[in-house]
């Protein structure tokens, strides 16, 4: 199984290659440079591995939530690349990718992943390690105020992502005494998108390039004429 993965949903930009389970990655914190960095990152991974794009079985991508423009750059790139070789794509949640990274990096089983969504809100999700090496969402991903975030009623948790930088006190208080660790400087990474993408592909989650679409979570972006303020 050969899978290419990219993520451009936040200020981080990354690409990864999974070849029969072995993952290589390019990763940079590079706000507003995704359009310049992402294709060369893929290029360098492929040439390092000595394989071509056409040999890929599928392409996974961070489908959001995250910065609208970043999410669309990733979707646009993955649509173009996947259509060029007519391969399926596997959409992966950026929040789930953060949780997966935290489970591996901090040996955690329960993760509360949050991205600062600006405008006083956070993109939020709770995840548990699943038996297949992936992650399982507890409840639904949402965009909401820090004081409205969903915290599962049981278990001990670790918090990751920029939401924990902006709203650490409110979020920690909501966890009661059940917060073990806090890692705000965690971003979605393509190595985790790749790992989850392989699992998702095996589970039949591959779709056509056209169906590679963003998940914004925040959808009330404009008011129609006549709507009340």
């Amino acid at each position: 199984m050969k899978l290419l993965a990219i993520d451009t949903t936040t200020e981080a930009c990354s690409a990864a290659l999974s070849i029969n389970g072995a993952i290589s990655e390019r990763y940079e914190i590079a706000p507003r440079q995704h359009a310049t960095l992402i294709l060369p990152m893929i290029d360098s991974l492929l040439s390092e591995a000595g394989i071509t794009l056409a040999q890929m079985d599928a392409i996974a991508f961070g489908r959001g939530p995250g910065a609208f423009t970043g999410v669309r750059i990733g979707v646009g790139v993955v649509q173009g690349v996947a259509f060029s070789i007519e391969r399926p794509v596997v959409p992966v949640s950026s929040l789930a990718a953060m949780a997966h990274g935290a489970m591996a990096g901090f040996n955690a089983t329960n993760v509360l992943a949050g991205i600062d969504a600006r405008m006083g809100e956070v993109y939020w999700g709770a995840y548990q390690r699943s038996s297949d090496g992936g992650v399982r969402a507890v409840g639904e991903e949402s965009v909401c105020g820090a004081d409205e975030t969903f915290i599962p009623e049981t278990g001990r948790w670790i918090g990751v992502g920029t939401a924990w930088q902006s709203y650490s006190e409110v979020l920690a208080a909501r966890c009661g005494g059940r917060l073990d660790q806090l890692h705000p400087a965690i971003f979605p990474r393509a190595c985790d998108i790749a790992a989850l993408g392989v699992i998702g592909f095996a589970a039949g989650e591959g779709v056509s390039a056209d169906e590679a679409q963003p998940v914004y979570l925040r959808n009330n972006v404009a008011r129609k004429r006549g709507d009340s303020v």
Partner: peptide, 11 residues
């Protein structure tokens, strides 16, 4: 730009 440039890259 993203779709057009990436498609050209892939091809």
């Amino acid at each position: 730009a993203a779709i057009g440039r990436s498609l050209a890259w892939g091809w």
